[in-house]
Design a protein around this nucleic acid. Sequence first.
DNA 1: AAGCTAGACAACCGCCTATAA
DNA 2: CTTATAGGCGGTTGTCTAGCT
Length: 215
Amino acid sequence: MRKPCCDKEGMNKRSWSPQEDQELMDYIKKHGEGHWRNIPKATGLLRCGKSCRLRWVNYLRPDLKRGDFAEDEEDLIIRLHALLGNRWSLIAGRLPGRTDNEVKNYWNSHLSKKLASMGIDPKHHRLSHHLARNLINSIAAGETSSALEHHQPFPLDHDQIKSSSASDHYQASDAGDGINDDDDSSSLLPDLNVDMASDSSLPSGTTTEDKMSLL
DNA sequence: AAGCTAGACAACCGCCTATAA
DNA sequence: CTTATAGGCGGTTGTCTAGCT
């Protein structure tokens, strides 16, 4: 049986009040970040240390940007997610003023749906079976790879996503849709076969930092 | 006006890792 | 080397609110 991170008896588990925020900010101004578990004792806050840390990191930190995500931030999140998967803290680290929680929430509530509506599997960053098939048919009909560059299998415009961004990298999804059952779409779609979420498309030994530098 | 629903966001939970003892 | 502890992270849940019926 795992020991709880703190004694939850008597702990406040509701939203933070302005008074609690102020006490936490005062403490951190005075003592700096860290030693989170001392904070409840030192301040009398009925919160566990982890909760104090989370409140500071996600809400009280002075360098937080807050507000809507800009188009370039969205683009970067999509690219980084394609590279790193659900490594929210790493993704947030590349977005000044944004927190991992914020990025994660934004992804789950906005971006994953947006990609899905564009026919892209948000988990694997691959085109859906149907859209991939359209591309394959176009190629089989004699379109060149340069035609592929201009092929827009789903409505792409700057209100949705920059055409030069994540959509460039998507390949046909084989996640349960049988795209590879009777043909090898990856060989037909070399330009799209860049699954950044898996290391297979990069040289062995490629580190996360190496991937980041590709951006 | 009241009830319901979905979306957005804040917060918690539990696991993992690093590190000190 | 082992164990305990604290911090960090991602997944999940809870709460609030706006829009709709």
